[in-house]
Amino acid sequence: MLRLIIVRLLAAVPVLFVVSLVSFGLTLLVPGDIASEMAGPTATAADVARVRAELGLNQPPLERMVQWYGGVLRGNLGRSILLNQSVGQAVLERLPVTLSLTLMGLGIACLIGIPAGLLAAAKARRWPDQVTMAGAMLGLSLPDFWLGLLLIYVFGVLLHWLPTGGFVAPGTDLLGWLRSIALPAASLALTQLGPIARMTRSAALEVASSDFIRTARAKGLAEPRVYARHVLAGSMVPILTVVGIGFGLSLGGALVVEQVFSLPGVGRLVIGAVLRRDWPVIQGGLLLTTCIFVLVNLVVDLLYLWVDPRLRENA
């Protein structure tokens, strides 16, 4: 297993290099720069050039790239031009917001999606199956920004149950944190719930027709127990796959949800950096996000080995 981890981590190095190279190229190709943003909409070309010089942005791209890679090798992702702080610090400050949003969203999606998928499989082609799958399709089809606004209107404006935006750190007020993260996590969960429920249903249907399930039933086990214990265990590999993909998609969805709910997370940081061409933040943010993707994939691969002993032999 240790060998697998080492191999996978080493394989991640070229991935990270290519991602950073592509994002560097894109920041160079995209027109406009942070100097024009700082100078303001009615600044003249001379004003923009002056700000650019003051910010030290007149460096040739190659020199900038070499300097940046040199920094990365020393663990320094550079300094944000806008925020006046190191990129690593800026991302790490915001990471708890994005991670708590993503994990809670995915957690809710799993807590509802997996039982719903099992129920649909157990009652295949009957009304619970049809209702569950219709709900899954609906969740899958709704754009998360629209869903977010709808949740704000219903639970914030009409019912006054939950805040309409903002973030409370869990260290400050745990209940406040739960309240602040509930609606954004719910809007992420609703979009992820569909794929998880659908994948659980199809995997469970396949496993349910296996011999060992027939044996379990023959032993006299009650149907709910058959599904909760045996069918679920047998379906875990595809479910883990879709949850792993869902984590990546949730990180992407968090970009939008953080905007709608004004959450100061990594998504908002990166979007702001893209809109203003704060290239060190774009570079650093993308690199760290890619790292998270790679690590999540590695964790999913390790979980495969844990849930399915047969795979350990090939590992």
């Binding site: 606004l149 704000i152 404006v157 006054h160 805040p163 309409t164 935006g165 709608v260 709910f261 004004s262």
Partner: peptide, 14 residues
């Protein structure tokens, strides 16, 4: 940044 969220926040008194 989201106009709808600003309006909702004003309506709720946040």
């Amino acid at each position: 940044t989201e106009g709808g969220a600003r309006t909702a926040g004003l309506q709720t008194g946040e």
